[in-house]
Design a protein around this nucleic acid. Structure first.
Lengths: 149, 149
DNA sequence: CAATTCAGATTACATCTGTAGTCAGTGAGG
DNA sequence: CCTCACTGACTACAGATGTAATCTGAATTG
């Protein structure tokens, strides 16, 4: 099929491009994979960025090449967690889900899966494994005092 | 090739059956997937169990059939997180990694990935999202007092 | 002892992930 | 104006995962 030359949402809008779906399609519903997460990190740090900029930020550390970043960006757009905005001939990518929200769901997932939805056992685990620094403890105590109020 | 009739470690003992492994092969090194985790849960609850018993425990809730459970069990054995012990003509499966250990690594992974290895921000998130029950808070306070000592 | 049944082994297959290569259009430079 | 570089789009492909069917041998049962 003919490809429009105007920049448009990259990659496979294939099976669900109709956009009419009422249920289960809110942005961020899709899981973000490990590799994708690295890309998101970069964009959460600063947005919007071009693909090249994202690569500058992550390719070195992860040992990736541009094509890899491109693919990941495309997938993230497909998943609905990144928005694209044409800027001349390239795209600017912007997160559609706040890091905060993502982190929230992920933490929740873990707590639900592993600790029956209770945060205390998680905390206990971290404590047992000495995953808590003194600083952590201090901060948590502070937060607790806040909550108490 | 002829298959020995005596029950033996199911599936792909292929590349690492020698047992002499020195490096990088400690049990539990492999990641446990979501579906596999359900199987492990059952076995952590009670062990050893036969495949049929595990299915009794999870097939209903997850909408699985026996073959699925078999596959998952086989994969878990391959991954080195389940041990098998012949019992008549079937196998008894037993976890090789304690739930505790698994839960520990997973929590750690999350904290590392999402919160830069610090537990306090995780805690803050849970607090913000009201993921903390009063009970949780009480328990955590108790744990904190323990730690203080 | 033969037929049935049940367990594990093998195979299947679509999707997702990690990681990349290639193609084609568009704007920039000569 | 033509060529080249850069960018996004498409294709690739192996391994993991979710989910299951089929095959085969062995144990149970009549």
């Amino acid at each position: 099929m003919a490809i429009e030359h105007e920049p448009q949402a990259p990659a496979g809008t294939g099976r669900e491009s109709t956009g009419h779906e009422g249920i289960g399609r809110e942005p961020g519903a899709e899981r973000i994979s490990d590799a994708e997460y690295a890309v998101m990190e970069s964009l959460w740090q600063r947005a919007p960025q071009t693909a090249a900029e994202v690569c500058d930020n992550v390719c070195a550390t992860r040992g990736w090449t541009m094509p890899t970043v491109k693919t990941l960006l495309a997938r993230l757009v497909t998943k609905g967690v990144l928005a694209t905005e044409p800027d001349g001939r390239r795209f600017l990518y912007t997160p559609l889900v706040a890091r905060n929200a993502y982190v929230g769901t992920e933490s929740r997932r873990l707590v639900d899966r592993l600790f029956g939805g209770r945060a205390a056992p998680l905390f206990a685990h971290l404590a047992e494994n000495e995953a808590l620094s003194d600083e952590d403890i201090a901060e948590i105590e502070h937060l607790l005092r806040e909550l108490r109020k």
